[in-house]
Design a protein around this nucleic acid. Structure first.
Length: 483
RNA sequence: GGCCCCAUGGUGUAACCGGCUAACACGCAGCCCUCUCAAGGCUGAGAGCGGGGGUUCGAGUCCCCCUGGGGCUACCA
């Protein structure tokens, strides 16, 4: 029987949750859920300079927005905590003590200046820059003397020459590195803090992580970490390095390609499920070939062997398409709710409209928007009478003979119309056009322009029904004086 | 520079352990529907699988080389 699956997402709280991190979290989450395992959230906040509490919060908020829930983490103790690295310092310390006791780690007194000078010399000689191990043979007495003298030091892992490091990556296949290019890596910094690679190994081991799923930018960290696992005598987990998310020029996605924070997409009017669905398909595809997937379908279908091995460009159009697909399937009340933040910015909102009418109104745009923020630039005319009329529309209107007379007569008919709902309105206007020997289109376009100031809106009759009789007539009367 | 990863239309992917007239989706174009805009329906353009060598009856699929792109090269995570 194999150990129960335990995976983790381990962000540094140095910024908002970004797209790449979100997808790493997503893949870990999907993998855990597919296997009935545990998904853990760990905050890697050992960089005191850049780590901020607000960012921890922002990352949690981002994950929550996406609907990615964790089983263990900062706010959810699962018996493997604490879940902040800064609260785990004692654990790293005891791991280091073990290595020290076993002589697997040694004191290095080389200053950063010495090290960079060494690096430059090696580069000049066209050698690979690496630590030359000069402190590895210091006598016990000398080490103690220099520590007593207050000299600063780091702790380095002894890496045996010629040791080969290989693993079978779950998405990349067989990967191996010769350790001739691995030097004696620093495990504890001179300020006493563990290095990233060391802390990660200690944490992943203690948290019983079975599968490390992370971005492929970590491939070259992996041999170093495996060396640390070996030194510590811990079992090595499985690794899966997933491809990067790229910008349109195929370089790593960054601010200059557009929004990189997940939360920006919320503000642009994306539905979290749609965004998450899109993200899941970036570098992964289910065997069914389906694209729009429910959460349960993703859980069922997600496997690492179907993760592709090359980077994927983040494509806004496709994202927008996913979003539109989700909007189409939403119920009216939800669409209204999602649009609310933008509706509230509109002058005159909500006017005389009650919730039911607002829902109908927004419903008119359901298939006309890809993101919720688009509502803001489209729907305003329902709340405020048009101050001006589309110039192109006016040009066309000017070609209609006797337009003012025609419209005045139509207004009279509308005033006499008791049932101001879609079907009767359509009958009335079509009948009117026929009676007058006019093209329905002309009448409709004229009305649309008069009511909204626009040449493009949802269907006229349904729009008028929502607008209501008094407002419709008032607007058309104003319009008669302008044409 | 060194090490590592990757390479199917503009984009995301599919093509089971080699048999394809290379599939799907987004986007794009055209047509239909139609009161406009969308949505929807239909049709189409777009890759012969980065290039070159092998292996094989047969290669997008296996091997080698090259090219291109990306990542990593810290007492940062």
């Amino acid at each position: 029987m194999t150990a129960p699956v335990r995976v983790r997402f381990a962000p540094s709280p140095t910024g908002h949750l970004h797209v790449g991190g979100a997808r790493t979290a997503l893949f870990n989450w999907l993998f855990a859920r597919h296997n009935g395992g545990t998904f853990i959230l760990r905050i890697e906040d050992t960089d005191a300079e850049r780590s901020k509490d607000v960012y921890t919060q922002a990352i949690l908020d981002g994950l929550r927005w996406l609907g990615i829930d964790w089983d263990e983490g900062p706010d959810k103790d699962g018996g493997h905590g604490p879940y902040y690295q800064t609260q785990r310092l004692h654990l790293y310390r005891s791991a280091v003590e073990q290595l020290l006791r076993e002589g697997k780690v040694y004191h290095c007194f080389c200053s950063p200046e010495t090290l960079s000078a060494m690096r430059e010399e090696q580069m000049a000689r066209k050698e690979d820059p690496k630590y030359d191990g000069r402190c590895s043979c210091l006598s016990r007495e000398e080490v103690e003397k220099r520590i007593a003298a207050g000299e600063k030091f780091t702790l380095r892992l002894r890496v045996a020459a010629g040791e080969n490091v290989a693993w079978n990556d779950l998405t990349k296949g067989e990967l191996s590195f010769g350790s001739h290019l691995l030097d004696d890596l620093v495990v504890v910094k001179s300020d006493g803090f563990p290095t990233y690679n060391f802390a990660v190994v200690v944490d992943d081991s203690l948290m019983k992580i079975t599968h490390v799923i992370r971005g492929e930018d970590h491939i070259s960290n992996t041999p170093k970490q495996i060396l640390i696992y070996r030194a510590l005598g811990y079992p090595v987990p499985q690794f899966s390095h997933i491809p990067m998310i790229l910008g349109s020029d195929r370089s790593r996605l960054s601010k200059r390609h557009g929004a990189t924070s997940v939360i920006d997409y919320k503000e642009m009017g994306f539905e979290p499920e749609a965004f998450r669905n899109f993200l899941a398909l970036l570098g992964w595809s289910p065997e069914t070939g389906a694209e729009v997937l429910t959460q349960d379908e993703m859980f069922k279908l997600f496997t690492l062997d179907r993760v592709s091995s090359h980077g994927a460009i983040f494509n806004m159009e496709k994202l927008a398409w996913f979003n539109a697909e989700y909007i189409k399937k939403m119920d009216g009340a939800t669409v209204l709710n999602r649009c609310r933040p933008w509706l509230e910015k509109l002058p005159g909102f909500p006017g005389e409209y009650d919730a039911a009418r607002l829902e109908k109104m927004v419903g008119l745009y359901r298939e006309r928007m890809k993101t919720f923020n688009e509502i803001e630039s489209q729907i305003g005319w329902f709340f405020a009478e048009p101050a001006e009329f589309d110039a192109k529309g006016m040009e066309k209107a000017a070609k209609i003979a006797d337009r003012a007379v025609l419209l005045t007569e139509l207004i009279a008919r509308l005033e006499a119309q008791a049932d101001f709902s879609e079907i009767p309105l359509e009958a009335l206007i079509r009948g009117f056009a026929e009676e007058k020997g006019r093209k329905v289109g002309d009448i409709i376009h004229l009305c649309r322009l008069g009511l909204s100031g626009r040449t493009a809106t949802p269907g006229l009759f349904e729009s008028m029904a929502v607008l209501g009789k008094p407002s419709s007539i008032r607007r058309l009367k104003t319009f008669v004086t302008r044409i």
